[in-house]
């Protein structure tokens, strides 16, 4: 009797846990619990192939100060907050808009809304990153069709200095061995050529509060933290967990963004200003 009670109890705990953990139920593709439609190594190789066929991404600034926007977890369908971000980006004359993953649900219609919104507002200096939602519903097919690559460096050139932003594909919860090796080589070979270095990684590294959002496995986390320390990465900007938090560790500031999702509590994006060699940022409420 005791055993039966225990078994029923355990089943209830784990079943309830699994349900609770499905934090984005409306836009979730539950096949993702068991398989990945396109694996991270394959996406990485396709991204590098695209990169070799296109010019390196570059933001050229006329003066030494520049402004960047970072937004995460917009989850289009809804576009109210996204439209505000686009409007702010235009009115503030930002030099770059970085979309740090989970911008769409992965469905084709949501990709269409995203692309149409960017085109309608004539936003050209945008840089989009893969989050887990971009990959749902075989969404990589659409991401690749519209944006080409999920792994790429962006060079920011001012009259006095050059800075580097590295966009990573962490939509599958791991960078995979190839992307990790690429990142290490990139930092080893070129980091010293840049004043500031910012890395964008959709999945949050640390759990500042109880969360059901998947994070990198400890082995990968160790490797990334060590790389970021070794090569003095200034900032790592993340999303995924929908709640902003900050951790400082050695030379690196780890920033997790709030969701910019319509109706989200504390919805915000990050405005980053580089002035007088310093990176200064603030959250802008939506």
């Amino acid at each position: 009797m005791g055993n039966r009670f225990l078994k029923i109890g355990l089943f209830a705990v784990f079943f309830t846990g699994a349900l609770l953990m499905s934090s984005c139920i409306g836009d979730a593709d539950f096949t993702g619990f068991f398989r990945s439609s396109v694996r991270v190594n394959e996406r990485f190789e396709q991204s590098l192939e695209w990169n070799t066929q296109h010019a390196p991404r570059r933001i050229v600034c006329e003066n030494n100060n520049y402004r960047l926007f970072f937004a995460s977890d917009i989850h289009i369908g809804g576009t109210e907050n996204f439209q505000k971000i686009l409007n702010d980006s235009k009115s503030a004359e930002t030099d770059g808009l970085f979309l740090v993953g989970d911008i769409v649900s992965g469905k084709e219609e949501d990709y269409n809304i995203l692309v149409e919104s960017l085109a309608r507002e004539s936003i050209e200096n945008y840089f989009i990153q893969v989050g887990n939602h971009e990959l749902y519903f075989n969404g990589w097919k659409w991401f690749r069709q519209y944006f080409g690559t999920s792994v790429y460096p962006v060079e920011i050139v001012t009259p006095l200095a050059k800075d580097l932003v590295i966009c990573l594909d962490s939509g599958g919860g791991t960078l995979g061995p190839l992307q990790l090796e690429w990142l290490e080589e990139l930092l080893r070979n070129v980091r010293q050529n840049y004043r500031h270095c910012i890395v964008l990684h959709h999945c949050n590294f640390f759990q500042s509060d109880f969360s059901t959002s998947a994070t990198p496995l400890s082995e990968e986390l160790y490797e990334l933290m060590n790389l970021f320390f070794t090569y003095s990465v200034d900032m790592v900007i993340m999303g995924h967990v929908h709640i902003s938090s900050e951790e400082n560790f050695g030379p690196t500031r780890y920033i997790c963004l709030d969701a910019a999702l319509d109706g989200a509590k504390n919805a915000s994006y990050l405005r980053l200003d580089c002035s007088d060699d310093h990176l200064v940022y603030q959250y802008i409420s939506l």
Binding site: M21, S22, S36, Y136, G171, G172, G173, T174, A214, P216
Partner: peptide
């Protein structure tokens, strides 16, 4: 070990 259990697409780790 797999990466991305729960709300991320599962990938081999």
């Amino acid at each position: 070990k797999s990466a991305g259990f729960n709300n991320i697409q599962v990938n081999y780790f």
